[in-house]
Amino acid sequence: MTAERHGRAVAAGLVGLAAVAALLEFVIRAGLVSPLIVAPPSSLPQAFALLAREGYLVAPFLITMAQAFAATALAAAVGVPLGFILWRRPLLGRAYEPWLGAAFAAPLILLYPLFLVIFGRGYATTVVVGALAAFIPIVLQTRAGLLGVPPVLINVGRSFHLSEPRLLWKIIFPAAAPAIFTGLRLALIYALVNIIGIEFLIDFGGLGRVVSQMYFQYQIPAMYAAIVLIVIVSLVFLSLLQRLETWWRPR
């Protein structure tokens, strides 16, 4: 019943999307809006074909994804141990947690000129900016996950006289793992979004660069196609990760 209703809503959404596309097509064909400003939806398949033919589709996608994963790995390598330390030393936790919260709200991506200065216009800059964005949710989620481990579990471990490292590896980390995974999921998305943004801004790398390039070459349909591609990639990536998380997390 709910699934059926959900399906009907999705179908209605698709109909709505088609209607918007048809309306746009009509307005452009009628000459009310120039096709040089809004690409007619009917030109998108051809534009995608063009992007694919010129190598602007698969390679940039892979480049962007590789950077997002590299940035997240880098952020996790620093962030998980740091989250652990902030849990282990409550004073440090209390001192730094509000800072991390404030950094979450701060426009971190604006620091990219700083990394441009230090690393130059290359993958080091894009990956570090992505890692910076990915780092904060990982630290905060790691600490929150460790703080949220039920004391009962720890007491059980102690009553079995587990040594401290075994207690950590057998009980505390597994119990905190779901929260850490949530942090990693958020981190991947932040890294992806920030990396695409930087690519667009500095004309370098994968998907974001394609948009910038098509704009400056005035290839309007191809530019729209690249933007649509980025939206689809973000959405598919987001929902895949959410599914992975619910599938993996024990109920």
Binding site: V193, G197, F200, Y215, M223, I227, S234
Partner: peptide, 14 residues
């Protein structure tokens, strides 16, 4: 959801 996730800056050309 899809548009909320995507980086908004890429809409700048449009």
């Amino acid at each position: 959801d899809g548009l909320a996730t995507a980086p908004k800056i890429i809409f700048l050309p449009i």
